[in-house]
Amino acid sequence: MVRIGDAPGVRRLLIGTALALSALFLLLPLVAIFAQALMSGLDVYWQNLRDEYTLAAIGLTLLVALLTVPINLIFGVFLAWLVTRFDFPGRRLLQTLIDIPFAVSPVVAGLVYLLLYGRNGWLGGWLDAHDIQIMFAWPGIVLVTIFVTCPFIARELIPLMQAQGSREEEAAVTLGASGWTIFRRVTLPKIRHALLYGVILTNARAVGEFGAVSVVAGAIRGETNTLPLQVEQLYQDYNTVGAFTSASLLALLALLTLAAKAALEWRAARRETAT
């Protein structure tokens, strides 16, 4: 008996369509980025990369990622620990609040931060009086990036930690282990893979965030331009090759992220079958 939709012709047609669409919508743009970037040859590509402003953008992007990832790592683990290990009033509300950065448009997030910390904002006057600049400077960029990426790690950890329960931690505490020892030797090894996965996602988003950052950065060339903003600005300047050169860096990073993610999943799957 042939199941519905299982005729060889139908199957081939469906698989073929899926592959063709994937190539058209996913693979082709990726190839186009590198094709455009290398259009005028490797020398021009290299020259574009060494452009003063592009280098500044790369540096700023790295700084943002370097600050955002560890902060969210600690925040995410702490939040997941709190939500899964303790029962307190408002726990459900907190779990919902975690998702706000996912639910709200990044542009709105940027605007809210501008409203809070901008010169005319609620805290702007005080910050100005103390000569602290947050908006249109790197601290603002880091702040919004933290906001936009903060759910990734907590979201990865919460379901896992819920499923694992806290029996092993209880066993550890009956054996006299301190809170830190329990976290380091029992909890952390259990959540290691999910945590790494969350870090990869956070990093990818921190590097690539455009909307929220563009609102608070103010597009000061060489100062507050991250790579995604640099791409846009170069493009506005009709420097197509330059724009695609920067874009190719982001694309490369994305590919690396995907490779790391695939490697992790492969390792996790191998672990499952080994035990």
Binding site: E168, E170, A171, A177, S178
Partner: peptide
């Protein structure tokens, strides 16, 4: 304390499980 579902540390060897309390 012995738990119904053992609650062994799954990422540690049998040796490390037994040694855990002494090491802690």
């Amino acid at each position: 304390f012995v738990f119904q579902h053992y609650a062994l540390f799954r990422h540690m060897s049998v040796y490390d499980n037994v040694a855990f309390g002494l090491n802690a």
